[in-house]
């Protein structure tokens, strides 16, 4: 329970860290750390405008999407606390329940009957389909290495290993999870959240017609994903045997780092050409395969 509260608190910070990093990197004064939260408050105060084309699906999609993310949150372990709900191969459930949320986000966009939103929905469906193998290879490799299958046990068992070379694998996993969170949340280099042309957007164009409460829910969903993946990265990098205070400190450090990395990344690099995105996303599966081979070597299976 403590873990969930901390993840929620941390995830509310990340967007602020990203925009602070970006404004410092570009030499602007920029908005404050809590600006995204203030934006949320504004959205929550506003009423809503619904397109005449839309129906029930459009209205329930953001709520179900957020519910799926919160459900995924309960499966994420925090340090040595373990997850709220834990069972064997729970990361399959984790990935699939997030897919459920995406399913609704996609059909919610299609409900608008707009070519733009259809396009965004299509891209989201394509990229999230292609990024999934990377996540599964990564977690499958963890399971193979540790012999456990649930998130909590996997990360516990991972740090019991006395093989120091496993650090290579940690580094690759760290890289992969950061890339996955970028794709999940439609950040650079897959998507540019600040672009002004609908034709080049992915996530933003999907949610064009949302306003008020529903839009706030969608934003909260993306915020929470930062926290969730931040917790996963922490679990890989920080030994679960350390005391809880170190865990908490490390978690916040990781989450802030995540924000800074995303911010710097967006300040200094351009978005991919849309046609190159599939290659980019599939490369992650390739890297995950390399990690798998490394672990095969380390386990002496050759």
């Amino acid at each position: 329970m403590l873990g969930i509260i901390l993840i929620i608190i941390a995830s509310l910070l990340v967007p602020g860290v990203i925009i602070r990093t970006k404004s410092i990197a570009s030499g602007r004064k920029g908005p404050g750390l809590f600006q995204p939260l203030k934006d949320l408050r504004v959205l929550l105060r506003k009423g809503s405008v619904f397109s005449n084309t839309t129906g029930l699906i459009f209205r329930i999609a953001p709520s179900l999407s957020l519910a799926s993310i919160v459900c995924a949150l309960t499966l994420v372990p925090f340090g040595n606390q373990g997850a709220l709900i834990t069972f064997g191969a729970d990361f399959v459930f984790f990935a699939y329940i997030l897919s459920f949320g995406k399913f609704f986000a996609i059909i919610g966009a299609l409900d608008c009957g707009s070519s733009f939103e259809g396009m965004g929905a299509n891209r989201e469906a394509l990229y999230s389909m292609m990024v999934e193998p990377a996540f599964f290879i990564l977690l499958g490799t963890f399971a193979m290495f540790t012999g456990y299958t649930s998130f909590t046990d996997i990360f516990y068992g991972f740090h019991l290993s006395d093989n120091n070379y496993i650090l290579i694998f940690s580094v690759i996993s760290f890289y992969l999870l950061i890339q996955i969170v970028m794709i999940e949340n439609s950040r650079m280099p897959i998507d540019d959240p600040k672009t002004h042309l609908e034709l080049t957007m992915i996530h933003e164009v999907m949610i064009l017609d949302y306003s008020g409460f529903d839009k706030a829910l969608l934003h909260i969903g993306t915020f929470l994903k930062y926290g969730i993946y931040g917790a996963l990265i922490t679990a890989i990098l920080i030994n679960t045997k350390w005391s809880i205070y170190i865990q908490i400190f490390a978690f916040f450090a990781v989450v802030v780092c995540l924000g800074v990395i995303i911010g710097l990344n967006e300040s200094f690099r351009a978005r991919n050409k849309m046609g190159k995105n599939p290659q980019f996303v599939l490369t992650l599966s390739g890297i995950a395969l390399v990690a798998f081979v490394i672990v095969l070597l380390l386990m002496g299976k050759f």
């Binding site: 506003k46 009423g47 809503s48 405008v49 397109s51 839309t54 939103e117 064009l208 017609d209 409460f213």
Partner: peptide, 12 residues
């Protein structure tokens, strides 16, 4: 939403 103004409009 019960307490908020709801409007209808065309799709963007």
């Amino acid at each position: 939403l019960r307490r908020k103004p709801i409007a209808a409009g065309p799709t963007w």
